[in-house]
Design a protein around this nucleic acid. Structure first.
Length: 268
DNA sequence: GGAGATGTTTCAAG
DNA sequence: GCTTGAAACATCTC
């Protein structure tokens, strides 16, 4: 599920645990989640530490613990974070549970496309990989110039596909990429090399607008976006373009391996 | 039973 | 070295 606003929402789910001490760490050691680090290392690395703070950047999350321990999390397609009562016993797809005594922090992911990592550092700086993440759409360093340089580097790639590229648009996922193309009335399969400077300024602006609105509506309490957006119509078979005066049947097709939804009239 | 799902990595080819 | 495109990953739901 998670794109930047959903990631922000899930980050907040663990916030009630800030200040708590990790009494016990429970894992499913054989889960694919632990492909980058053994579950035993996560257990010994976090046990006894205090949960200090959490951060979100695009689809990445970082949780800091006392003594220079940093837990990185990516939710993949189906990852979720929630809290449960203290002493919670992990269910089938709950691969990591941090028991804080009075409550438990739970990471579940049934498809296991998510992953996790743990950095132990001497200073109190976040690990290098985190500091080097590309600027997010709402960051001042996410400039028009940056968008143009990135997009034009791949002239034979469709715009929608590039919007999904985390090196250029961290946090943008499938529904947001389709939304941006639809709002701009650009066919998602438009090759980036055919977009002129003015059009890419529009892409920059719309990427920021969609990100801002998603953070406001979903990032806070997972509310519903306006029905005037493509989002609420894109999954249903027989979905209709919500643009005033259009009402054309939406098309869903595979584009470079991802389901893509657009209006053949507005974006024709 | 088959297809598809809001994602990333990897590998091969141009 | 770079870009491009497809397959692989794991499990559940329709």
């Amino acid at each position: 599920m998670p794109e930047l606003a959903e990631v922000e929402y899930y980050r907040k789910q663990w916030e009630p645990g800030v200040g708590g001490e990790v009494v016990r760490v429970l894992t499913h050691p054989a889960a694919r989640i632990y492909r980058d680090i053994p579950a035993a290392a996560v257990e010994s690395g976090l046990a006894g530490r205090t949960f200090l703070a959490s951060h979100a950047h695009g689809k990445q999350m970082l949780f800091s613990f006392s003594g220079g321990a940093w837990l990185g999390l990516h939710l993949g397609m189906s990852g979720e974070l929630r809290t449960a009562p203290g002493g919670h016993a992990p269910a089938k797809h709950e691969h990591l549970v941090l028991d804080l005594g009075d409550q438990s922090l739970v990471f579940s992911d049934y498809r296991m496309f998510g992953c996790l990592g743990l950095d132990l550092v001497d200073d109190n700086e976040p690990p290098a990989w985190w500091r080097e993440l590309p600027p997010q759409p709402l960051d001042p360093r996410f400039t028009k110039k940056r968008v143009k340089e990135f997009v034009w580097r791949f002239p034979r790639t469709p715009l929608k596909t590039l919007l999904l590229d985390q090196r250029g648009f961290p946090g943008i996922g499938n529904w947001m990429a389709d939304e941006i193309c639809w709002q701009l009335r650009i066919p998602p399969q438009t090759l980036s090399g055919s977009l002129d400077e003015a059009r890419l300024d529009d892409v920059w602006k719309e990427t920021r607008r969609v990100s801002r609105e998603a953070m406001r509506v979903i990032g806070t309490d997972w509310g519903d976006l306006a029905d005037a957006w493509l989002m609420n119509h894109r999954w249903r078979d027989g979905g209709i373009c919500p643009r005033r005066g259009c009402r054309t049947g939406l098309v869903r097709e595979d584009l470079r391996g991802r389901t893509t939804c657009w209006c053949p009239k507005c974006q024709g």
